[in-house]
Nucleic acid binder design. Structure first.
Lengths: 323, 323
DNA sequence: TTGTACGCGTTATCAC
DNA sequence: GTGATAACGCGTACAA
C-alpha cells in the first residue's frame, strides 16, 4: 500500500509538504508541488479516505437511504440528487432499505458510522427513533423524502392526496360516478383517499367505501382486481401506483372491459398507451431537497425551531384513456 | 462524538476490553461484556468505521459501479447482489457512473480510496487502465459486468449476439425476410448484428446492411425510425433495448402500420402488450457474479492465470406480437 | 516556505 | 481475563 509517506520520501520532502501539495492548500513552491503531483501519479497514489475522514471527523458525503430500488421515480430523483450535490462538492453514498425497517436500521447505522454529513431517507416506519436522536445529537441534518414518519424532522413529500383529488375531479367532470380507487397500504404517506373523497363531496356524490381498496405493494393484485371490478362494477379506475395500473389493465383485459383509467406515476409506456396519469414533479422534488440540505449544511445548523413539511403538488396529464 | 474511550471509562475498563466486548471477540467476562454492551447502547455509541477500516486496511465491503441507474435490469441484478453479498458478510457500496468515463474514474478512485475489498463495474470505455492496474497491484478482485473492455480481467456478459440470433431465427421461421435490427452503438458489448447475420445466413437469406441500424442510447429515435420504416419497408423489427422498442411502436403507430416486433429486455409492460422479448436471465447473472467474487475473495487471490469471460445466454419469450 | 510532532478512533500484540 | 501501547494514514498546529 503506497501512502503519502512514500511519496514524500520519493520527493525528498516532508509528509506535511506532500499533503499540502496534493490537496492544493497552504504554502508550497511550484516546483515541489509539480514534482509531488507527478510522483504521486507515477506511483498510483490514492489517498486513504478512511484516514482523511477519521482525521476530519467528516466525509464530505451525503447519505441517502432509498427504500425501493425498483421505483423508477426514486431513481430519477436520486440521479439528479447525485449530480446536484456533486456541484456543491458533496459525494453521495447510497444505501437501500428494501422497504424493511431493520435493513433501514443497518443503513442508518452504516451512514452514521461512516461519518456522513447529512442523511436523506424514505422512512418505512418510525421504529428507528433512537438513530434519529443520535443524528440530531451529532448535528447531522436529516430529511425525510416521499414519506414522513418522524414529526420532528423535515420532510418533502408529493401530495398524493391532491393527486387523487385531481384524478377524481377529472373523472367526475367526465360524468363518471362509480370511481374505484386502488390505493397503497403504506403508512406515513400522504393519504390518497382524502383527496378522492373531497372531490366526490364537492360534486355531491355519495362516497362508497367499497370502492376504496387498499393493497400492499410488492405483488400482483391482478386476480383481486378482476374479482373486484366484476363484482363492484366501477365505471372508472384510479390506480395508486403504476404496478397497480398494469394489474388493472390486465384485469380489464381478462374481463373484456375497457374502463377509463388514471394511473399514478408517469412512465413512458403509459404515454404510449395513452393513459392519463398523475405525474410527480421530479425537478421540484430534487431541487427542494438539495436546497433543504444545503441550507442546513451551510448554516451549520442541523435543524431549525420547527420541522418543515413540504408538500409538492403533482400534475394531471390527460390522455385518451379518459377522454 | 462519543467514542470507545468514553464507553470504557464509563464502565471502568480499558479500551481494549471494551473493544473486545463490543466485537464479541477474545476473552471478556460475561458481566463486563453485558455491562459494556448496555452502556454502549445507552450512550448511543456507534463505531467509527473509518477508524476500523484504517486500522484493518480493509472494509468488508464490495464496491459496485453501475453505469445506468435507469436500467431496470441492472437494478434487479443489483438488488440481488446486495442481498447475496450480505449473506456472506459483505456490505455493498454503490457508485453510479452515468455512462461517463470520467465519472467512472471518480467512482473507481473513491472505491479504492475507501479500501473496498472488491470492485464490480460496467465499463464505459477502456480509458481507466491505470486504475485497473492499481487494483491488480493491490490484489483487489475485479469483475466486469454486462460489458468487457479490459481483456485481462474477468467478465460476465449476456450474450446479446445469441439473443439477436434467437430473435432473427424466430422471425425467419415465421417467413419474415426484411427484418430490421435496431441496435445500440455501444462499444465493449456483445455484438448483436453478428447473431442477426448468422441466423439469416443459416436460412440462406441475403443480408441487407441497410436494415442494420445503430443508434446511441439516451434519446428518442422515434422520428428516425419513422423515416427508416417508411423508406426501407421492413417486414419485422428487432429492437435492441426497450426504449428503442417503445420508439419503434410509436413510429409504427404514427405510420399506421403494425409490424411484428421483438424487443430486448423483458419488462412488465411488454408482457402486457403481448410483445415477444429477449429476456435476460437475472438469476444466472447475479449468481455467477457472486460466485466469481467470493471465490477470489476466499482464496485470497485477486485473479487467476487466465481471465474468465462468461457469456450468459438470454431466452426468447414468444408472445402474440410475432405469432 | 518547510518540517516536526501529535492526535483522530480503533484494534492487535503482548505483558501482566 | 485484562490493560497498556503501538500502529493504521493523514492533516495541521506550531516551530523553524
Amino acid at each position: 500500500m503506497i501512502n503519502i509517506k512514500d511519496i514524500a520520501k520519493a520527493c525528498n520532502v516532508s509528509v506535511a509538504t506532500a499533503s499540502r501539495a496534493l490537496r492544493n492548500t497552504g504554502y508550497v513552491s511550484k516546483e515541489k508541488r509539480d514534482l509531488i503531483h507527478r510522483v504521486a501519479k507515477e506511483h498510483g497514489y490514492i489517498v486513504d479516505s478512511n484516514a482523511q475522514n477519521l482525521k476530519n471527523g467528516k466525509s464530505n458525503t451525503i447519505g441517502i437511504i432509498v427504500s425501493d430500488i425498483k421505483n423508477f421515480f426514486y431513481n430519477m430523483v436520486l440521479e439528479n440528487l447525485i449530480v446536484e450535490f456533486k456541484r456543491f462538492g458533496y459525494r453521495v453514498i447510497i444505501s437501500y432499505s428494501f422497504e424493511n425497517s431493520l435493513t433501514e436500521r443497518d443503513c442508518f447505522q452504516f451512514l452514521l458510522s461512516s461519518k456522513v454529513d447529512a442523511i436523506i431517507f424514505t422512512p418505512i416506519s418510525n421504529t428507528n427513533q433512537d438513530l434519529v436522536d443520535i443524528s440530531q445529537k451529532r448535528d447531522i441534518p436529516l430529511l425525510q423524502l416521499f414519506r414522513s414518519a418522524y414529526p420532528e424532522i423535515d420532510s418533502i413529500c408529493v401530495d398524493d392526496g391532491y393527486g387523487a383529488y385531481l384524478a377524481t375531479k377529472h373523472l367526475v367532470a367526465h360524468s363518471y360516478r362509480r370511481i374505484m380507487l386502488v390505493s397503497v397500504k403504506l403508512p406515513f404517506t400522504p393519504n390518497r383517499s382524502k383527496g378522492y373523497k373531497r372531490a366526490l363531496e364537492e360534486a355531491d356524490i355519495q362516497v362508497n367505501e367499497d370502492l376504496i381498496q387498499r393493497f400492499e405493494i410488492g405483488n400482483s393484485i391482478e386476480a383481486k382486481l378482476t374479482e373486484l371490478i366484476d363484482r363492484l362494477k366501477p365505471d372508472a379506475i384510479i390506480a395508486g401506483t403504476n404496478t397497480f395500473g398494469l394489474n388493472a389493465i390486465e384485469a380489464m383485459n381478462s374481463l373484456g372491459v375497457n374502463l377509463p383509467l388514471v394511473v399514478f406515476d408517469n412512465l413512458d409506456w403509459l404515454k404510449l398507451l395513452g393513459i392519463t396519469t398523475i405525474a410527480q414533479p421530479i425537478k421540484q422534488i430534487y431541487e427542494q431537497t438539495v436546497e433543504n440540505i444545503m441550507t442546513k449544511l451551510e448554516s451549520g445548523k442541523s435543524s431549525f425551531e420547527e420541522a418543515v413539511n413540504i408538500k409538492i403538488k403533482p400534475e394531471l396529464i390527460v390522455r385518451r384513456s379518459t377522454d
